[in-house]
Amino acid sequence: MNKIKSLDDLRKMKQNLEHEMNIREKSNEPESLVQIRVAMATCGIASGARTVMNTLVEKIEKDKIPAVVTQGGCMGYCYAEPTIEVKVPGKDPVVFGNVDSQRAIDILEKYVVNGELLEGIIPTNYQTINEKK
């Protein structure tokens, strides 16, 4: 271990270290972040969900996008795997199907950052029978 010689060194060190804690810091306030859930059931993994997840995590980290990626179980859209669900604070969740790495980046750049909608959205309904009027 090298000695920290000044306050500036301490601050630099903090900046280098904080990204490793990012994932924990983000979990402290998930509601204020864009929450992205990747369907990670067997069929999802087989069609490349893990690569998609890696791409998302790396891109978010690199561009410092205020989003957090979690993994979920099967969402039921087996025909369109890999699928991801994106929940922007204050909006209804949107599910994207047939997501590969390139599309994952598009979704982040266009939908998450700029709010533009993209092709390939799976129509979903989050209401249950009881809530329907």
Binding site: S6, L7, L10, R11, M13, L17, E18, E20, M21
Partner: peptide, 17 residues
Amino acid sequence: DEYIARDGYAALGNIIT
């Protein structure tokens, strides 16, 4: 390192300098 990543020792640093 995890303590420093959460602003550890920053208060001390600010005060003594």
